Amino acid sequence: MPTSRPMSRAFAVRTMRARLLRDSFPRVQMFILVSLTGAVGFAASAAMLLAGIETMALRYALAMGAAYLAFLALLWVWLHTSASDYLDVFPVDGSDGPACGPGAARDDFTGGGGSFDGGGASANVDFGTEGEVGASIVEKPLAAIGHAEEGAIPLAVILLALGLLSSSLFVVWTAPVLFAEILVDAFLAAGLYRRLRHLDRRHWMVAAVRRTAVPFVLTTLLVAGAGWGMQAAVPEARSIGGVVAGR
């Protein structure tokens, strides 16, 4: 009886991804997981504030860590509740499996930046007394510094929102590949399919961390930096609400 050709891991992931896109809504499912992750992070930050952790940068970093652990736990729940739906993607008896569906398209992420342009103003100076000239020299830089601090607050809030949104969109958009990889790795670890048994087995969490750790780390640095900046501008603030109210 002829034996079928072994399947590569890349081919297995593409096949699983095509099945996920055809029979389910992986990005919608990931959106739900990401939303729950955000709720956990928000709740963790609020709980730490009640516990007395008032430094926003530290609290936001710890909240992101708690959110990431919750995200991995949610992936575990998704895997154990959904894996049985895809047991027929690869043949158990070693016969040829279904042809691979549409190839995985390369996900291109392009980002654009904005420019922050400033302009100066010129004015005629009416020479007066030495006191008036000295007051004018001192007041203008102080006013400029005050405006800069006021402008830093909304900028920090915008950066915080953009960081959370960008990382969430990235994880949601790449969900088909992430789900496909953790399913294939779970099947490999279980040794369910002959055509996959020649591949190296690894825990499904390896793929999950490899695809999501960088966005979470970058977002953590961004939100912690934004928290530090906001609290530096409004030292008495302990939350974003306090920063806005203290402007």
Rank of each mutant, 00 (worst) to 15 (best):
M1N: 04
T3K: 13
R5T: 14
A12V: 01
M16K: 06
R17H: 02
L20I: 10
L21T: 05
R22A: 15
R22C: 05
D23R: 14
S24E: 09
M30V: 05
F31C: 02
F31T: 08
I32H: 07
L33F: 02
V34T: 08
L36K: 14
G38R: 06
G38A: 03
V40N: 01
F42L: 06
F42E: 00
A44N: 00
A46D: 02
A46I: 01
A46P: 01
L49M: 13
A51L: 13
A51T: 04
E54D: 04
E54K: 13
A57T: 02
A57M: 03
L58W: 09
R59M: 03
Y60L: 14
A66I: 09
A67M: 10
Y68V: 07
Y68M: 09
Y68K: 09
L69H: 09
F71Q: 08
F71D: 06
L74Q: 11
V77M: 11
W78D: 04
H80L: 01
S84D: 03
D85V: 04
L87N: 02
V89G: 09
F90A: 01
D93A: 10
D93E: 09
D93V: 04
G94T: 05
S95A: 14
D96E: 14
G97R: 15
A99E: 15
C100Y: 08
G103S: 11
R106P: 05
D107W: 08
D108C: 11
F109V: 15
F109L: 13
T110E: 08
T110G: 04
G112R: 15
G114P: 03
D117A: 14
D117L: 15
D117P: 05
G118V: 12
A121I: 12
S122A: 12
S122D: 11
D126S: 12
T129Q: 03
E132F: 00
I137N: 04
I137Q: 07
V138A: 09
V138L: 12
E139F: 06
K140I: 06
L142V: 15
A144W: 06
E149W: 12
L155D: 05
A156I: 01
A156V: 02
L160V: 07
A161M: 09
A161G: 10
A161V: 12
L165A: 13
S166G: 05
L169K: 14
L169S: 03
V172A: 04
T174N: 14
T174F: 07
F179A: 02
E181T: 04
V184L: 07
V184T: 05
D185S: 14
A190G: 12
G191I: 11
G191C: 06
L192H: 10
L192R: 15
R201C: 07
R201P: 04
H203M: 11
A208F: 13
R210T: 15
R211W: 08
V214E: 04
P215Q: 10
P215K: 13
F216K: 08
L218Y: 05
L218S: 09
T220A: 13
T220W: 07
A224C: 10
A224M: 11
G229A: 12
M230R: 06
M230V: 04
M230E: 00
A232P: 02
A233S: 12
A233K: 07
V234R: 14
P235E: 03
P235H: 09
E236T: 10
E236D: 06
E236W: 08
A237S: 10
S239D: 14
S239V: 11
G241F: 04
V243R: 05
V244P: 03
